[in-house]
Design a protein around this nucleic acid. Sequence first.
DNA 1: AAAATTCCCGCAAAAACCCGCAGAAATTGA
DNA 2: TCAATTTCTGCGGGTTTTTGCGGGAATTTT
Lengths: 248, 248
Amino acid sequence: MLKKERQELIIHEVNLHNKVLVADLSTKISVSEDTVRRDLIELSDEGRLVKVHGGAISNSFRNSYKHTDIYSLDQKKVIAQKAVSIIEDGMLVFTTGGTTLLEMLRILPQSLRATFVTVSVPGAFELLQHPHVEVIIIGGKLSRNAQIVVGGEAIHRIRKFNADLAFLGVNAIDTQRGITDNDYEVTLVKQAIIESSSHVAALTISEKLNTVQKIQVCPPGGYHSLVTELPPDHALLHPYQQSSTTIL
Amino acid sequence: MLKKERQELIIHEVNLHNKVLVADLSTKISVSEDTVRRDLIELSDEGRLVKVHGGAISNSFRNSYKHTDIYSLDQKKVIAQKAVSIIEDGMLVFTTGGTTLLEMLRILPQSLRATFVTVSVPGAFELLQHPHVEVIIIGGKLSRNAQIVVGGEAIHRIRKFNADLAFLGVNAIDTQRGITDNDYEVTLVKQAIIESSSHVAALTISEKLNTVQKIQVCPPGGYHSLVTELPPDHALLHPYQQSSTTIL
DNA sequence: AAAATTCCCGCAAAAACCCGCAGAAATTGA
DNA sequence: TCAATTTCTGCGGGTTTTTGCGGGAATTTT
């Protein structure tokens, strides 16, 4: 087999699988590992792939994830748009923390007149930028990780409210386990918010669909709306379709 | 699995859930915890995430706060230095809002171990950056102007505390009228804080000395320490010298 | 203060890498 | 065609990287 031919095969393989192992290529093309290694070095010098210890990865590999990172902001904006559409003037609205939630709070229309109750410090900060919303923060001990208020006192306060709507930032969601999180204190707060709200909207980017964390926040169907950046009839969302749930 | 591949997976996971645990990653990708730990260290060195005890948190989660320009920053730093010197480990400390206060909170030594109770949203945010302080925020309606919690509920909560020390951001101070402010709700909150603290330290830049606002917060001598950027024996401060007041 | 986690350091084994060499293969030029 | 020359390949052996593990230090939790 020609050297050139072999290298093209390697490129093809890399583009196909995003990564290759020296050992695999060696057996696959029946040449020594050293030869493969030398090919990878050449291809790497030509900038056609990125050599790493043990093999090589495609140029776009880092992009394949980074892609989602860059655009996750846009995704969150789409989610935020949808979420905003279900807020009505005069409502009492609960919000939790989380970057998706923050993004939503940021794009609230300036004209909106509503009362927001939040457990999130950065969330409160964001809400203060809006001239016509009244902001109430729940008091209590702050969780450094989540940057939200937690603890018995906070939960007690939350239960005093009877909100029309709750926006729940979601860490992981699954058709079997429902919404899950990895911080016990946070799950307690979210549960209290769910129980104190007439309508619960779960906000998440689609990547978190079908992922599971340690502790359950609420069972499948424990929320009334599911908001993602995908169109409501997207295949990924079909399993989440229930009579009690609206998919936005 | 390639090392690089594994690290990208970790980055992805961190960006997705804001936080990851070493143990979780270890089982998820079937490598030892040490390997995960080493990956986290490398990624942390590259600045792609922030390593913490037990796992890592995403960069964007920590950087969400932007430093805004603050008027006469240098003077406020001097004040902050002095103020910090009267805090002791284990104290329960009240703080109000105001840019001077914020500046002080920012330069608190990382090693300080104390509990802070605050009515200020940006103050809470700043305090959360300090690893060893417990942060409690008073709940209630937020004042858009002052970015602090106000109202009867908040005041009721404040009175439940018995703090060792209170840092009072000062709007105007005068030898005749004492500390004054122009927002009625805010004065009520500050009064409640004063009454709930054994020692009250008033923080102000010298420009505010000998100025008066509409509503009295407390009479001259109603505070125990006065902290400005001037040396304690400066002529401007002489009129404020009282037996009950320490000038820093 | 005690108990439990988590971290860190050094070690050793396995894997991957690199270097130089020599034979094989391809290329070149008459 | 054939020999000289260049390029390529596989291999031996030494070096580096990576990984898991033991055990003690540091940190967090109870």
